[in-house]
Nucleic acid binder design. Structure first.
Length: 277
DNA sequence: CTTGGGACCTGGCTGC
DNA sequence: TGCAGCCAGGTCCCAA
């Protein structure tokens, strides 16, 4: 079972889907063996200390932003971040060339952390807050309201695109979903955070919720639990409408999707649906 | 406070 | 065909 695909960068919906898929296999199981194939994967502690994970039970799994957290019976937390190209494979048949760590469980399952670009990282810490403590609000939590969003936007004076991908403001939105959210909200990515009307904040709020939750309902953009022999993706994919679709007609107004660079990030939008004013 | 750049990485693409 | 160089974009960190 492939819990993430190499083609797209995992954001909130993908990590949420991974958590959901892993849940029934991993919770309540003990780690029986850990093979660390690439020491660069591990941020903390030492490889030797990480071996203390053997014998510990997974009490629960949590997603926070783009982080996946294994709460352990010792009270510690194993935290994973897939970054750009990380993938988790549950019970793969062989071992692929990008495998960086293999976790074995007491029910016989094994989980492979695979990562083409080697940017992904894991930690095992006493206090997860050290790693995830600065993250902003969870956009799908009930505590996230239009009023909270309005307040967060007023606190900054930056392009909206930059605000959406800032993990310390809202946690979990990356480059691609930010573009989809702004398209759904019909707001230009360069609009400044402190200039939105009340109605625009409302649209933005509902777009954040709708885009992320419908992506989760589609099991993320790239998570595929049923790899076919040819390696194709299944059908459970979120349908991107502007992200990475330069020059293709906008699905709403047929205007060609435009690409600009915001904060060194490729940014796609429809000039027809998302005018600056 | 904000912006910009580099670092970390490697595969895929472009252009010569 | 081969190869150099750029691009992808999550996070951290430093400088202005």
């Amino acid at each position: 079972m492939l819990l993430y695909w190499l083609g797209k960068v995992p954001e909130l919906p993908e990590v949420e889907t991974i958590k959901t898929e892993l849940l029934p296999w991993i919770t309540g199981q003990r780690f029986t063996r850990l093979t660390l194939l690439d020491r660069k994967l591990l941020r903390w502690p030492s490889a030797e200390e990480l071996q203390q994970i053997v014998g510990q039970r997974v009490e629960s799994l949590e997603r926070r932003g783009k982080y996946l957290i294994f709460h352990l019976s010792s009270g510690r937390s194993l935290i994973m971040h897939l970054r750009m190209t990380g993938a988790l494979l549950l019970n793969p048949e062989g071992i692929n060339r990008y495998a960086r760590a293999v976790f074995h469980f007491s029910n016989g399952a094994h989980l492979v952390f695979s990562d083409r670009r080697r940017l992904g990282v894991i930690w095992m810490v006493e206090d997860a807050g050290v790693i995830i403590g600065k993250l902003g609000i969870e956009p799908l939590a009930s505590s996230f309201t239009p009023g909270i969003l309005a307040k967060l936007l007023k606190e900054h004076r930056i392009p909206l695109k930059a605000a959406l991908i800032d993990q310390n403001i809202i946690a979990g939105i990356g480059n691609m979903y930010a573009d989809e959210i702004l398209f759904a909200a019909r707001i230009h990515p360069l609009r400044m955070t402190d200039t939105l009307s009340v109605e625009e904040v409302q649209r933005l709020y509902h777009s954040i919720r709708n885009v992320l939750s419908s992506a989760i309902n589609s099991k993320g953009a790239s998570v595929d639990t049923y790899i076919r022999p040819e390696g194709q993706l299944g059908r459970a994919q979120f349908d991107f409408r502007v992200a990475h679709r330069r020059s293709q007609p906008c699905p709403v107004c047929q205007t060609p999707v435009q690409r600009i660079v915001v904060r060194n990030r490729g940014t796609y939008f429809c000039p027809g649906c998302q005018p600056y004013n």
